[in-house]
Every structure is written in C-alpha cells, then in structure tokens.
C-alpha cells in the first residue's frame, strides 16, 4: 500500500512541476493544484496506511489497528486552504486574461518589469 501511495505522490508531484514549467498560466495554476494534491496525499500517508479501523475511541478503548487521525485532520485543513488559494489563483488568471489578452507567463512577467508609469496629477486621481 505504501509503495502505491509513494509512487502516486511522486507521479503527481512530477506532473505538477512539469505543468508549472509550462508557458500558459492556466497550466501553471492547474499544476499547482496537482502538486497540492500530491502533497496532501503525502501528508495523509504520515498517519499509517495499514490501519484497518477508523480511529473512534469508545469507553472500551481505542481499536488496536487504527489509523492515526491527526494527519487526516491536517489534510482536511490543507484541502480547504488549498481550495481557497486555488479560487484566488483562478481569479487572478481570469483578470490576467481580461487585462493582458493572453495568459503567457513570460509575457506577463515582462509587464511587471516594465518601467513604472508616471503618476497622474493628484487632482485627476482624487
């Protein structure tokens, strides 16, 4: 089981990094998501994968072969946070498309390197 999960994590991370090296911002954002899922799976595997019982402790005591619930809660937290960040990244992607007319990463970074525009006179801005 561990070997399968380890390989899956490795493949997911590799795919994620490969996608993030792409020129299109959409694939970069999706690459971040794939990478994030690989990482989540890795964190999940920290809580033992061979636990057959759910970690419910009753008055009679905890089951002998239980999975460690802590990494599961950690992953739950990470999934929620990751989802929020993914939505923000999508919003940035959408605005980039609207403002730049394309989503090519090297052309977008070139915009950030452009000389600073002159500030409008204070009266105009107010």
């Amino acid at each position: 089981m561990e070997i399968v999960v380890a390989l899956t994590v490795g493949v997911l991370v590799a795919i994620g990094i490969w996608m993030m090296l792409d020129r299109g911002l959409l694939r970069v954002v999706l690459g971040v998501v794939v990478l994030g899922n690989g990482v989540n799976l890795a964190v999940f595997s920290a809580g033992r994968l061979d636990g057959l019982a759910a970690a419910f402790a009753s008055a009679a005591g905890a089951p002998a072969l239980a999975a460690n619930p802590l990494p599961q809660t950690l992953v739950l937290t990470a999934i929620v946070i990751g989802f929020a960040l993914f939505v923000f990244a999508l919003a940035v992607l959408e605005r980039s498309w609207a403002l730049h007319g394309h989503v090519e990463t090297d052309r977008i970074t070139a915009v950030a390197e452009e000389p600073a525009p002159d500030l409008p006179a204070p009266r105009d801005a107010a």
Partner: peptide, 27 residues
C-alpha cells in the same frame, strides 16, 4: 496583476513545500 501572478505562484509552491515537510516531519 502581473506582479501578483509571480508572487502567488512562487509563494504557493513554497507553502506546499512547507506542508509536505510538516507531514513528513510528523510521519
């Protein structure tokens, strides 16, 4: 927005490395 793209992507990668490290450390 262009600056934000750079900032968001690089910081997300760093945070994921941190999360992965936290998971491995716990394991």
């Amino acid at each position: 927005l262009a600056g934000t793209v750079v900032y968001v992507v690089l910081n997300l990668v760093a945070t994921m490395m941190f999360l992965l490290a936290a998971g491995l450390l716990y394991g």
